[in-house]
Simulated scan of single mutants.
Amino acid sequence: MRVLLVDDHNVVRAGLKALLESTGRIDVVGEASSGEAAVGRARTLEPDIVIMDLAMPGMGGVQATRRITQLGLETKVLVLTIHDEDEFLIPALNAGAAGFLNKSIADTDLMGAIEAVVRGHSYLPSRAAALLARRKGQGGPSRDAGHEVLSSRERTAITLYARGFSANEAGQEMLASPKTVEGYIARAKSKLGLENRRDIVRFALESGLLHAEGEQ
């Protein structure tokens, strides 16, 4: 897996690089110390994953995440930060981040997060998942209402899609053609007012169709 490290502290990048390359499964292909540099290097290097800090001088991690996800690459962004999920989780997900992890548990959870994100899944530790659940309980009627208008086949299709399945793979699971699956997804997006896979992943998490990594 090819990784771009983004953090404005040299010592943090050095530590992460040593940790990742010691696994023998990660190639750190580039580093950046600012959001602006991260966008440029993501465009040039097209890594599998960007490990993104949030608080940096100039362009912050949330804006850089949004810019990278708008490049049209296959690159996924995993946010790795010391900052509280309560303040930064939702903005990061809205910007297109595929995962969110606190640096305090990076030594034990980082490789699992990377592997999940590269497979096309979203990754949220239990505390972040609990925050989304609380937000759903406090302000999620519209999401719940959206959930109810979907047929069972549409719900299955977007759940598989949110988990990273292609239309062909989802069709094999559902015993349906890829074209039929694409139709289910298109109808669900239209009913829910969603535009892309990031929107579907966020909806699936908030509505309970998709559980965060580590949840049962």
Results as ranks from 00 to 15, higher is better:
Ser122Asp: 02
Ile82Ala: 11
Ala95Pro: 03
Lys76Cys: 07
Met59His: 09
Gly208Asp: 02
Glu31Gly: 11
Glu115Ile: 04
Ile185Thr: 04
Lys179Tyr: 13
Ala145Tyr: 08
Gly146Cys: 10
Met56Gln: 11
Gly60Met: 07
Gly60Cys: 05
Pro57His: 10
Tyr161Asn: 08
Asp84Glu: 14
Val118Leu: 06
Leu5Met: 10
Ile51Ser: 00
Arg155Tyr: 11
Val79Ser: 00
Lys136Trp: 13
Asp7Lys: 07
Ala38Ile: 01
Gly208Met: 04
Asp84Leu: 06
Val201Tyr: 02
Asp86Gly: 06
Glu169Met: 12
Asn10Gln: 09
Ala188Asn: 01
Arg163Ile: 05
Ser126Gly: 11
Phe203Asp: 02
Arg187Pro: 00
Ala18Val: 12
Asp199Pro: 03
Leu19Gly: 05
Arg13Leu: 14
Lys17Ala: 11
Ser166Glu: 09
Val11Met: 14
Ile68Leu: 05
Leu210Cys: 08
Gln216Leu: 11
Asp144Met: 13
His83Cys: 06
His83Ala: 05
Ser152Lys: 14
Ser151Gly: 15
Val3Thr: 12
Gly40Gln: 10
Arg163Tyr: 12
Leu71Ile: 07
Asp84Val: 04
Asn102Thr: 08
Val6His: 01
Asp144Tyr: 13
Arg25Gly: 09
Leu45Gly: 04
His9Gly: 07
Gln172Cys: 09
Leu71Pro: 06
Arg198Gly: 10
Leu175Ala: 13
Asn168His: 05
